[in-house]
Design a protein around this nucleic acid. Structure first.
Length: 272
DNA sequence: AAAACATACAACCGCACTTAA
DNA sequence: CTTAAGTGCGGTTGTATGTTT
């Protein structure tokens, strides 16, 4: 159907935003209690930018709730975990990291995290050991990782719900279970359930489960325990030695560990 | 000191999806 | 139902900055 350009291209500015432009955009949005129509915003605000550019600048940089500064180790771990589940769905991943934008996460992934996975000998797309899916058949197979994983998710969800109802009277603080349910009920879980739906008919019980999350954590555990060629991948030692072997310090670590250590054989004893 | 190279990140582009007429 | 506008998203590029030679 052929899209028309979002704006007249002639005479509109491109490239980096100036402080003046930022100020105009921010004050316009503040004054009007929102951006309204992005398309008409530049004209109304007096900016020589297209609406798309304004939206991008606002959502990725000027929004007041944006958390700037370096990513924490926990955030990086979470991104890797979520990427294993969701793939390159940056917006969905960003929705689990308050104050972080999809663009920021995408940049982090492309500049740091992807390399780390490669250094660890993992395929950054499938989170499988590199070279394990050279067979073209495996390419199609890779798409079913989440399919195989969904039974575990579903089981874990049911377990968590049951456990939560048991514990709800005695716990006021965050537990593994409620964190799991929070994810399950979030966009991530929603996305996963979407996969579940579409793949439901193809679902077969599988004894082995080389799913992304499970195999990833296992790989990390074994690598950090045995690898002699860590080299530049300090990530392995610093992040995963601590996360895989030391005491968990807080609920977020615990929650992450829940995902990292997701069992590969439907053994849900970790929930007990 | 300067050129070459590498890295990080903001911004752009185009496609896909949603919604309203 | 069809069509086009509006918006969101992911891939990619351009440029500023840092590092190495």
């Amino acid at each position: 159907m052929g899209r028309t350009p979002c704006c007249e291209k002639m005479g509109l500015k491109k490239g980096p935003w100036t402080a003046e432009e930022d100020e105009i955009l921010v004050s316009y949005i503040n004054k009007n209690g929102g951006h309204g129509s992005w398309r008409s915003l530049p004209k109304l605000a007096g900016l020589l930018r297209c609406g798309k550019s304004c939206r991008l600048r606002w959502t990725n940089y000027l929004r007041p709730d944006i958390k700037r500064g370096p990513f924490t180790v926990e955030e990086e771990k979470l991104i890797i975990q979520l990427h294993g589940i969701l793939g390159n769905r940056w917006a969905a991943i960003a929705s689990q990291l308050p104050g972080r934008t999809d663009n920021e996460i995408k940049n982090l992934w492309n500049t740091h995290l992807k390399k780390r996975l490669i250094c660890m000998g993992l395929d950054p797309q499938t989170h499988q050991p590199a070279g394990s899916s050279r067979n073209p058949k495996d390419k199609a197979h890779a798409g079913s990782n989440s399919t195989r994983h969904m039974a575990q998710w579903e089981s874990a969800r049911l377990e968590a719900e049951a456990r939560l109802s048991r514990e709800s009277a005695s716990f006021g603080s965050k537990t593994d279970s409620d964190y799991f349910l929070r994810i399950w009920n979030s966009e991530v879980g929603e996305s996963f359930r979407g996969v579940h739906k579409s793949a439901n008919n193809n679902m077969k019980s599988s004894s082995e489960s080389p799913i992304s999350v499970g195999s990833y954590s296992n790989k990390c555990g074994s690598v950090s325990a045995t690898s002699n060629h860590v080299g530049s991948s300090t990530f392995l030692k610093e992040d995963f030695d601590s996360s895989c072997s030391s005491e968990l310090q807080d609920s977020s670590d615990t929650s992450l560990q829940l995902l990292l250590d997701f069992p590969m054989n439907n053994d849900m004893s970790f929930l007990e």
